[in-house]
Amino acid sequence: MLLADKNPTVQDFAAATSWTIEQRGACQGELCVPLAPGTLNDGRVDLTLAADRLGMAVVEDADAGLVAVGPATFAGSALSSTACPDLVLPTFDGDDFDLRSLRGQRVVLVAWAPY
């Protein structure tokens, strides 16, 4: 996912990756991965250090002024844990919908496309 730069805020990093950066490490649900010293500074994340620890690829297109980070790979599988990743997306009416709002119900999430 895209980031504004290689030193994003903790909030931007979480929105892009679904990993929250805390003093105890990078966390997703109950799972926390220890981080290298210096990863977290004044509410900002050193993307290179965090990505290296989580096994995330970083790709930069300098001409376009874009930086993107890929998903974590340290677990070797697409899911690092069975905890449902956070997901907030717009509906076709344009309103944001948070998958968490369906907690308490069984959910079948169907991915499709018109192509």
């Binding site: 996912m1 697409a78 079948v108 991915a111």
Partner: peptide, 30 residues
Amino acid sequence: CLLDTGHLMAERFGVVNIPNCVWIDESGQI
């Protein structure tokens, strides 16, 4: 019915072809 222009859902849930389904239980466990 959600729209995912950046394929964020696919990245987070490991979707590599469509259509695909994911089952999530009441407590948010896949």
